[in-house]
Design a protein around this nucleic acid. Structure first.
Lengths: 152, 152
DNA sequence: ATATGAAGCTTTATACTTAAAGGGTATATC
DNA sequence: GATATACCCTTTAAGTATAAAGCTTCATAT
């Protein structure tokens, strides 16, 4: 077979490229809408979304692990959210190393509004994906993650 | 239905989150390996990959459209690639506005080496995805893109 | 020829991102 | 209770990213 079956790695490369392009397209749209509609950014939204799930707050290091971004990165984003009055820092026990971060009242209120719009946007952006495809894709990607997570 | 079936938009939100996390995980790994193995970065690799497909080169604006990044961004990345001797700028016809960018001989050679490793890495990272899943995911994502592309 | 507008790229200001280094704090071990 | 070690966060330097403004050049129409 001359131009025979595509190798497994080629198939995976193709998958990766499509995954990346889909991601970037969606990210770009969300970024733009967050900017025009709410005068905020995707990283800030992501931090707020992470915090909203956890009323008691998170450590900076938890936040960076959860969001899959570097430690130092989170510092700057939280700084800005604090100066906007959406997030506050505190301490846990008496431990002066730690910095527990949580949404303020204003932060929660703001987030609820944004989250509703955000969910609607994602729904629109993925309008072409059927519900059963969505479920299937989700579980395939979940399999990827859990397969990967044990490593490094 | 009170806590009935998960709404379509929730299902899509979940999909988006998984998509993003998979993307970030893979991107992070590739970034790190490109850095340690070849002392380069993912954006530079992406530019080189785009150029490698097109021996005659691309306009800066084509490059930014293709890579889904902003115009000004490409300028800086290409600047660095030029200073590394991997890429060169030229002009098309007599048009002094345009800047045709293409890989140099050294750029092509370097890219071939990196691309082989890159394909191998992606294969490893997606080791848990079966070939038929890969095909199916790819075509679903393709459907998303073509559904989206006509817009804006 | 000249004005108008569009095309193509770079520059600017601001923000995000990483890796690595740095500094303070807690915990374990002796 | 001194020392070592690990933990947690911030700072730094370099690079990437965007949007918007700016510049030059080309094409078109007058």
């Amino acid at each position: 077979m001359v131009s025979g079956p595509v190798s497994a790695s080629k198939e995976k490369l193709r998958l990766w490229i499509r995954l990346l392009r889909a991601s970037r397209t969606i990210e770009g749209e969300l970024r733009e809408r967050l900017s025009t509609e709410f005068d905020t950014t995707l990283p800030r939204f992501d931090v707020m979304a992470a915090l909203y799930r956890v009323p008691d707050g998170m450590l900076m290091s938890d936040l960076s692990r959860f969001l899959l971004v570097s430690n130092g990165n989170v510092t700057g984003i939280v700084d800005r959210l604090v100066s906007e009055g959406l997030v506050q820092r505190g301490q846990r026990n008496g431990d002066r190393r730690t910095s527990i971060v949580q949404l303020t009242k204003a932060g929660k209120d703001t987030f609820r509004t944004m989250a509703a719009a955000h969910e609607r946007w994602v729904g629109e952006l993925l309008a072409g994906v059927t519900k059963s495809d969505a479920k299937q894709l989700t579980s395939m990607l979940k399999a990827f993650r859990s397969n990967w997570e044990g490593r490094e």
